[in-house]
Design a protein around this nucleic acid. Structure first.
Lengths: 221, 221
DNA sequence: TGGAGCAGAATGGCATACCAAAAAAAACCT
DNA sequence: AGGTTTTTTTTGGTATGCCATTCTGCTCCA
């Protein structure tokens, strides 16, 4: 865990790990694809040592799978896996929401409102790109405000693993309008600082999103 | 993540990681204690390479902290950290319980009953050791039956990190009787296959356990 | 006497070399 | 020609060495 703002000057393995994470998550590496150490090391202009260490980290995060004497492979993610992860994600967000409601300041709520209406603007303009970004932002902020570092880390981790799916889901979501409505409900509950309700709405919202994805099949090879 | 039954013959890093995990979790290494590569490698009779890789894994799991150019240190666990983790643990167990109730077979429930009454026997004999073991067993089994691998992994991970605290908490728990009562309630809800209720009782149960700990201060240096 | 500065020792970071296991390819036998 | 065995090549696992950074404690100066 720990999420030192990485990058910059810190260790090579962090950079490598960060690089690989991004590429896996953004789907530049296919699931199942092998990650041969020498080749990759050559490409990244680093030696095998930091690369190997980075791979161990990614394995611990569940993004790659390392088989003994067989090396690292980009983790296969079945629709079932995604559903599982999404479920846990929703559970975590629900829990975070309850905490957040208990501690959010007026300014925090105001910021949620601001983000929400920005997002609504993006929705009205059919600007999926910004809608997606703001949507993510709101969800992350709900978790961030919870103040529970463990929760935040785990959420961030899951969120990363679902990024790809979530992004694609956003692109072709035909029930966009209803998703927007659900967000209205979330905001309303936030304004009322009703933790249980926010949690419930969130869980409902996320559940729907993912069911939509799961049915539509997708991506995962 | 990933929890291949490891051990046995698999890679050296797995063995080293497993060894360190156990020792950290069992409190054989003090929080804050440095883990110098050369020294440790010498002790474990391995070279620095697999040790370093093992440390990266443990860092990803949150058991050690690695600072750039400064090496690995057993993660400090403040009472606040523990409370955070315990909270998330309770959230995960609650979620797992709901799933488990939905899928548990009659045999599964029977096994819960069996374990419960074994535990009750240990309680009546004031056998804290076995009480603890059975208690853990029940909680783990509830999660295991959920069928959600992500949830299971995350729970196992958190559970490890809390092992030390939980163990000590068990040793000096003066509200043992009420804890036992809570477990009665959990079993009853399980028998009724009332997911919501099991989840609620579990969350309540765990919450109390940890509050007891947090007040009593402890361990954490 | 106390603090700033400066060796020297300790330690982590990265690269490389060597070994063993597995996979691929080639040769051989039927 | 097909399949099996053997050899070669590839690839991951581990050890070690060198370099950079940090830490320690000593010296020297105010």
């Amino acid at each position: 865990m720990e999420e030192t703002v990485q990058n910059a000057h810190a260790g090579l393995v962090e950079k490598v790990a960060h690089y690989l994470r991004e590429h896996i998550v953004m789907d530049h590496f296919q699931p199942g694809q092998r990650l041969p150490e020498r080749t990759l090391a050559l490409e990244l202009q680093v030696s095998r040592t930091p690369l190997r260490e980075a791979l161990k980290i990614l394995a611990a995060e569940g993004l790659v799978v390392i088989s003994p004497n067989r090396g690292a492979v980009v983790a296969e993610v079945s629709a079932a896996d995604m559903k599982e992860k999404a479920y846990v994600l929703s559970v975590l967000e629900q829990a975070a929401a309850e905490l957040t409601c208990a501690v959010a300041s007026d300014e925090d709520i105001a910021e949620f409102q601001a983000l929400h209406y920005e997002m609504k603007a993006a929705f009205l303009r059919r600007d999926r790109q910004n809608y997606f970004r703001l949507n993510q932002d709101i969800h992350n902020r709900i978790v961030a405000l919870s103040g529970n570092a463990t929760l935040i880390d785990m959420h961030a981790n899951l969120s990363r693993q679902l990024y790809r799916v979530r992004y694609l889901s956003n692109q072709k979501n035909d029930k966009w309008a209803s998703a927007m409505e659900e967000h209205e409900a979330i905001l309303a509950a936030l304004e009322a600082r009703d933790g249980k309700r926010v949690g419930h709405e969130l869980r409902n919202h996320l559940g729907k999103t993912w069911i939509k994805y799961a049915n539509g099949e997708a991506v995962t090879r």
